[in-house]
Structures are given as C-alpha cells and as structure tokens.
C-alpha cells in the first residue's frame, strides 16, 4: 500500500472555499509538491465539512485542525493545546465528537465533519444548544465555546446527558479557564431535549 501518486486535480474546494484558501493555497500547494517530490509524504483527502465537499492534496502531517483553520479559514474551531488536553478543537466526525488536533486529516478522509460553523441552520437560526449557552451565560471569553457547544451536542447525542452529574463528567474533556461550568451545565440541561430531536446545521 504505497502512497498514491496519482495526479491530483483540483486543489480548491468544490464549493464554499474562502478566498483566503485560494490565495494561500497556491503557495502551500507548491510546498506540498516540493515535499512530495522529495519523499512522497502527501496524501489526497476528501472530506465533507458542514455539508461542503473539500478535496485536497495535503502534507500527511496536516491535522484536521490545521486543515480547518489554516487552509479552509474555518477558524471557529479553536486551538488550545494541540495535544488533546483541552477540547477547544472539538468537532463532530461522522456525528461523534473528537479532538481535531490529534486527528490527521488523512484519518478523516471520506468522513463527514461538523464544526461550530455548521451547527446553526443554513438560515442562521441558532441551534438550541447555542441559544441555551447564550441564555445561561455558558461562556465568558468565548474561546472554548465552539468546542463546548459541539461537545455538548455530541454528549447529548451519545446519551450522556441524563443528569447534571453525568453532564459534568461527560463534559470534563472541555476545559473552560473562565470557569463557566455552571452555565454550561445548565445550558445542556435546558437544550438536551431539543438537541435530541434537532438536526445540526440542517443535517442529523
């Protein structure tokens, strides 16, 4: 199973790519090619992120988090530690919450990814979890918030939001240095029923 060397067409997202990704992408594409020529350490990936298909040839080292933030300008997903210790980079992969910093983009090839940008409806209506975080002041600085909200949706969908105690345990992978835990827990209590029955960003 050698690394595929088939020529790669495209290099921009099929839809929805930001202008930035286009500009910076060209330079990165050249580097990727340089590295590829030297050692074959690149990989083709195709992901559906918030309903949009992206196809890229990437340096194999590219984490899903790097891809989102540095290539696709989806900066709602935050970097807090880069080592799976804080949960700020939480996204849903095929509906399951994961740390995008410890996931290579290559590992997610073919996966469906939901980031905070894809949680509200296409019309911009807040997801019940987002609305509940707002109402219960489940954040202060807001930096861990995208990860908290995505994680909270994952927590509910996993069936781990049956009590306050269970929510606290199953939300402990998301650090909040501002200490907004009380509001976070209250928000999840309020939004859990609506979250069970709701779709995320227009998808289940």
């Amino acid at each position: 199973m050698a690394v595929t060397r088939r020529s790669f067409l495209g290099g921009t997202a099929t839809a929805g790519a930001s202008a930035l990704a286009g500009v910076a992408g060209a330079a990165r594409q050249a580097i990727a090619q340089e590295v590829d020529d030297a050692g074959g350490e690149s990989v083709d990936v195709s992901l559906v992120i918030n309903g949009v298909t992206y196809e890229r040839r990437l340096d194999t080292r590219t984490s899903l988090l790097d891809l989102l933030r540095e290539e696709l300008d989806l900066t709602g997903t935050k970097v807090g530690c880069n080592h799976g210790q804080c949960g700020a980079c939480t996204v849903l992969m095929n509906g399951t919450r994961i740390n995008s910093c410890l996931t290579l983009a290559a590992m997610a090839d073919g996966a469906r990814i939901t980031t905070i940008e894809g949680v509200a409806s296409a019309e911009g209506e807040l997801h019940p979890m987002q609305a509940a975080f707002l109402e219960h002041d489940g954040f202060q600085c807001g930096y861990c918030t995208p990860g908290q909200i995505v994680s909270a949706i994952g927590c509910v969908k996993e069936g781990h939001a049956t009590s306050e105690a269970e929510i606290r345990e199953y939300m402990s992978g998301n650090l909040c240095r501002c200490g907004a835990y009380k509001g976070i827990t209250e928000a999840i209590m309020e939004a859990r029923e609506a979250t069970h029955s709701s779709e995320v960003g227009g998808q289940s």
């Binding site: 949680v119 807001g142 918030t145």
Partner: peptide, 11 residues
C-alpha cells in the same frame, strides 16, 4: 445576555 454572545456561540 451578552451582546457579543451570538458571535461567540457560532464561531
């Protein structure tokens, strides 16, 4: 509720 909240909860 925080006026900057909508920006924060949507990333």
């Amino acid at each position: 509720s925080r006026v900057d909240g909508p920006l924060k909860v949507t990333g």
